[in-house]
Nucleic acid binder design. Structure first.
Lengths: 207, 207, 207, 207
DNA sequence: AATGAATGAGCGTTCATTCAT
DNA sequence: GATGAATGAACGCTCATTCAT
């Protein structure tokens, strides 16, 4: 499942350290100029080492993008796992999960935007790997929904609702020029949860 | 309002014709490799003329992207206008509009995907121009919703619902690897309309 | 001796007319941007006709430069001939000639500058043709000097003095950023004539 | 005062070395075909490295021209400084200075020709910088003249004479097709000094 | 393990010239 | 005679990648 980026460096600790520097530098750059407009020299500089060193830790420029995507997803997933209490089985749990997920999307909107706009530049393999992570995340939402509902929902409906919630979270960041002019984060969240609960025949939560 | 791409050609009819060739050729290319990975020579070749001729009809590579975005939105908008019957004021009207819009998104998913993944490469001005078209489209949905509802809806709710529908339409194309494996177009549409109507306290339409 | 630029047009009068338009347009352009930075399209536009028509009257872009150089020299030579009274044989004649020549260089400094900076771009033949005209002009100065002097001067000295006068005339235009800040045209002329006369053992003219 | 051409290379010694190669290669090329007709690839090849390496040491093609101009002037100035003995205050000093300057112009005629025909292609800033160096050189001549004269000369006359000497030196190279057919370097120098001394009311030197 | 100079394929763009109308 | 759309060789320049140190 894990897709490793080859390197000629032996020291695992160093690899970790250097790649963190790399991702940190690269995200900012990608955010501003996109993957294609960012040069490897810029990445090296932003990472605090030379172009030669950069290539000791990756094989191709694309590897940086992969590392960045992987990093972001890992961060997002990690946060979602913390946030979603799988044990609690009530409708409050659903609204909490949505609320937490939206908050996360708000905090990481730049990173998420970068990732979505650039995944297409990844190779088939890498793309598949990243997409799988996305599937995992949607699946987490599915579980929360299923657990929270007082009735049985069809597999299809479950998937659809989970995906809807998922894109509503992204929408906040992707369409920020529209949404964030009309709503505060709180308003947006409350209203989306309200619509969601009505569509699921649930009584609105006491937020 | 209109943003024209400068050209050194005088024959207006020819400009129209050549630019259509250009857009047609470019969309396919952008679909496959993205804007940045597509070379101007490839665009020229796909358009059926030489690189020199290409540059008689545009100033910069970016102009091609703008032309493509403009073309797509124009097509989408045109179709949406045909499809949405502004006179009819019933809930059927809403479900029809959503149905037609989803169908359109299904038919033009490649084009729409291209547009969304590449607008960011446009200059500030061009981007603003294209984004305005998107706003127009969302606004069309707002009008339909407002007209169809038997009750008064708040401005904010209206905007939110319209945007939700809008992204659900895109979702069908953008997340096709997920959605189109689970649903047929009909299923997807029916289920989304069902959720929508419930969230709006409307009784499900007789589709 | 005459170097004709081939054309496919039969009407001699038209050729004359069009080429005058051409030279007039081109000189301004060359003055501003130099020969290489000026495009044939710009020349055509500045001449008041299309690029197609331009090429009916010349074969290559270089022909325009030749025409321009030819035109300028012709104008300069013409003026010099008017100005130099070959009959009068006194030292006044020399100072008058120098004065007139300097005045001419002042009036045509842009044109002369253009010509000198661009002749090198001409083909060997054309360059030789244009250079011959320059020799003719220096020769005119030689004759005036010889006629004006009350004593016999060696061939070499004659050539040297004539060339000195010639470059002093150019200097006014070529080094204008230096000379024209220090001298008025009158001052410059008076002082140069003064130096010239002293170097020729002539008593200063009563200007 | 110093105008540096940016580079991405860190090793100062290497920069010096490579730029010398560059200037050497470029001068020959510019001599033959002029700046505009010379391609960057030709410059790279003549310099002994690849086009990529060329651009590690400059930013734009124009930088090469600037480097060439700068190099030539530096060389000329250096030589003039060696040659002009500022202490000695006699008329011999003047004739020696002129003699040395002419000799220098003879040796560097190609370089000087290149520079003068191409400075106009420099950007405003670079042109100003190069022109200042020329002013410096004329100023050196002014000082020699002033020191050599047994009488006081007006500021204007001083400037005029210095500029005359300056262009007479250039004339030997610029008008070589005329001058070098009529005179040997010695003859040309002797005769010009003779005319100069007469115009300054000095008795001819015993050269 | 780190450096950075070197490479050259390949890009976007220009423009002199042609030729069908 | 006049037009201007079409062409493509050639330009200046970039940048991912390599490799000797």
């Amino acid at each position: 499942m894990v897709k490793n980026v080859p390197t000629s460096i032996k020291d695992q600790f160093l690899i970790e350290k250097r790649r963190n520097q790399m991702v940190k530098g690269a995200v900012t750059l990608f955010k501003d100029k996109g993957f294609h407009r960012t040069t490897t020299r810029e990445i090296a500089e932003a990472s605090g080492f030379s172009i030669g060193t950069l290539y000791e830790y990756i094989r191709k420029k694309e590897d940086v993008l992969f590392l960045v995507c992987d990093f972001i997803y890992e961060r997002v997933k990690e946060r979602m796992e913390q946030v979603i209490d799988m044990e609690n089985k009530s409708v409050d749990c659903l609204s909490n999960a949505v609320r937490s997920y939206f908050k996360l999307m708000d905090e990481m909107q730049d990173e998420v935007l970068v990732m979505y706009q650039e995944v297409k530049a990844l190779s088939r393999d890498a793309k598949e790997y990243v997409l799988q992570k996305e599937r995992d995340m949607v699946h987490m939402l599915e579980i929360v929904i299923e657990n929270s509902l007082p009735y049985t929902i069809s597999e299809q409906d479950l998937k659809l609702v989970a995906n809807n919630i998922f894109v509503h979270g992204q929408m906040w960041g992707f369409r920020r020029w529209l949404m964030q002019k009309e709503f505060t984060m709180i308003e947006y969240t409350d209203k989306q949860i309200d619509l969601l609960f009505k569509s699921l025949n649930l009584s609105s939560p006491t937020s």
